[in-house]
Simulated scan of single mutants.
Amino acid sequence: MALIPEAEVATVFRRLADAMPGRTLDAKGPKGQPDAFRSCISCMLSAQSLDRNTAAAARALFALAATPEAMLRRDDAAIADAIRPCGLYNMKTRNIRAFCAALLDRHSGTVPDTRAGLMALPGIGRKCADIVLSFTFGRAVIAVDTHVHRVCNRIGLTDAKTADRTAAELEERAPDWAMQDGHFWLIQFGKRICRARSPLCERCPVVNHCLWYEASRAH
């Protein structure tokens, strides 16, 4: 897949903005968490986990401990048992403990509000960092999940093999005005219309700009 022309990128975002609800009043931090610490932990729990399982794991974990200090007072078995619903609980337990220790050691327990600062902490990758920056700190960044990654590379907004590379390309190509709410438009579009299987091209507001659709018609 290639890239759509630079001149068409803003048009695609305008059409998505017109067609999708965007950021809603009830949009909260990752998985509805009230602060940056719990947002980071919840993002870590969400890896390869269904939303409902992540939510169950987060509720159980934060009932045990809701600060890095309290988390480190719990042993591995207690943390792992709490987060069992989200899977990979042994690895995630190690990441949580390493994250909490580093957060206290390097930042006195305060979550940094920069991408570089977040990604320097154990267990925090580009996706998680951008989600926390967008939802918790209100920064104008497009966080890339599986839906956003699929949609952007299917249309031709980006041409990237990984979600991290998609995020980097969006930062370069998306207009500044689209960065604040672009995540919402893209993820809503990916769930409602540009689905992984059987995309609803007949209802697509950007079908005339989509390289995937153009290629499919040629075959």
Rank of each mutant, 00 (worst) to 15 (best):
T146I: 00
H209C: 10
G138R: 04
A120S: 12
R106K: 01
T136C: 15
D51W: 02
K127D: 13
I96H: 13
N208H: 14
E214Y: 06
R115L: 06
D105W: 00
Q188A: 12
R38N: 09
L118G: 13
F184P: 15
V111P: 10
I96A: 00
L16G: 05
A215N: 05
E202T: 09
A78W: 01
D51A: 00
Q188N: 12
A101Q: 10
R14I: 08
A101N: 03
K161N: 04
R154S: 03
E214Q: 11
F135T: 15
T24S: 05
T24R: 11
A60Y: 07
M20L: 03
A56P: 00
K92S: 07
G32V: 03
L88I: 12
G109F: 09
I4D: 02
M44K: 09
R73G: 09
S134E: 15
R94G: 15
A63W: 01
W185D: 08
A17P: 09
H209Y: 11
A57P: 01
R94L: 15
R139D: 03
I124T: 08
H107G: 06
A140S: 10
T146L: 00
P112L: 03
A77N: 05
T110A: 12
I142S: 12
V144R: 09
M71P: 01
W185Y: 14
V151L: 10
T136D: 13
Y213A: 04
A78E: 03
G32K: 00
V141T: 15
A65W: 10
L64M: 09
A27E: 11
S42F: 09
V151Q: 12
A168V: 06
G87K: 02
F135R: 15
N153V: 01
A140H: 12
G125C: 01
V207C: 04
E6A: 08
P30Y: 07
G32Y: 13
S216Q: 07
P85V: 15
R38M: 11
R73Y: 00
A102I: 07
P199F: 01
R94W: 15
L118W: 11
D35L: 06
M71V: 10
A82T: 13
I96L: 15
L170I: 11
G182H: 06
L103D: 12
Q48S: 10
L45G: 11
E8F: 07
P21H: 02
A160Q: 11
H149M: 05
A36D: 01
A140T: 15
